[in-house]
Amino acid sequence: MTIRGDVLLAILLMALVSFVCRAGGYAILRKFRPPVFAEAMLRHLPGALFAAYVTPSLVAGGVPALIGALAVASMQIATRNLGLAIVAGVAAVWAAQAALG
């Protein structure tokens, strides 16, 4: 049951930042409108973030990762269920690695 100082600091800082994101929207965005460009950037931020994350990882993962990506997208479109999509993707990568490796 250990909690290390550096880990505690990282976790609590993440918790604080997440709370500010959640509560700050209600507290601030209702009263002040951010600059138009910043607002438009915020709208595009999530998609760009995830694209920036998955691209190097898919390139590094090669063919099994691409097969996994297809499985994730198909399952997500079919079921709209995040958990099932993750499971399908991991299973597809597993199978592809076993078949190709």
């Binding site: 997500q76 999509a85 993750i86």
Partner: peptide
């Protein structure tokens, strides 16, 4: 293969976005 889970999570969120 389980390490593919984070990529999978973000991909499925991207489908919705």
């Amino acid at each position: 293969p389980l390490f593919f889970a984070s990529t999978a999570a973000f991909l499925s969120i991207m489908v919705g976005l």
